[in-house]
Design a protein around this nucleic acid. Sequence first.
DNA 1: TTGACAAATCAAGTTTTGTTTATGTATACT
DNA 2: AGTATACATAAACAAAACTTGATTTGTCAA
Lengths: 109, 109
Amino acid sequence: MATSATASLDLNLQRLKALSDEKRVRILTQLAGGERCVCDLTDALDTGQSLLSFHLRTLKDAGLVTDRRAGRWVHYSLNGDALADLEDFLRSIREASAATPATAEACCD
Amino acid sequence: MATSATASLDLNLQRLKALSDEKRVRILTQLAGGERCVCDLTDALDTGQSLLSFHLRTLKDAGLVTDRRAGRWVHYSLNGDALADLEDFLRSIREASAATPATAEACCD
DNA sequence: TTGACAAATCAAGTTTTGTTTATGTATACT
DNA sequence: AGTATACATAAACAAAACTTGATTTGTCAA
């Protein structure tokens, strides 16, 4: 068990919601290649600046990305720890499942 | 690298969407405790039967759960492989991120 | 200080998604 | 057969999310 205990169910849910949009997932894969400023992302994702800003805020509120101001530009980068937390959350469900006997309680017999 | 290559980006996205609802996450945590029939889940989640059926279908369409008919009852159980695929997908993004040099290409200097 | 540029915010409109209610289908029991 | 139970589906509605366009904030350069 790693750091998953640090992320509450609500936080994990917020992060899952943040990842439930294609554009936001694409943003993350872009950021996986390193820090990016918004102007680069608008080019890469072919999206309006305002819309991109909206999605970046969603990701930032969920703690999945961080931002850094540099002059006129704002650089975004991926927060790997948040992703790791989410992996741990999913694993905890999966491992609980694996631990249950194959023949679980019959529900209504 | 495990089985993640088997799940396309679209499938991973569909699964992330399926996990972006609190009730559906709670269903999964219930199923982590073993196979459950719908009637048990309605009790556990305090949700109408119809609504539960809707959410179960969403999970099933995403491949996150499987169902098994037994007489009048339908038993649902969690598909651990699908969760594992999702973990691998998140990890692949995270590890790509970790592999990039700390000082990435400056975007607009 | 003025103008230009990068990005965020706001206020709309549109689309998706979740919820409810009613109905349909399948199985079991008598 | 007929009835009851367990679950799925359909339509109508409500709520949330996404998208767009206009405006605002912050920064830099002349």
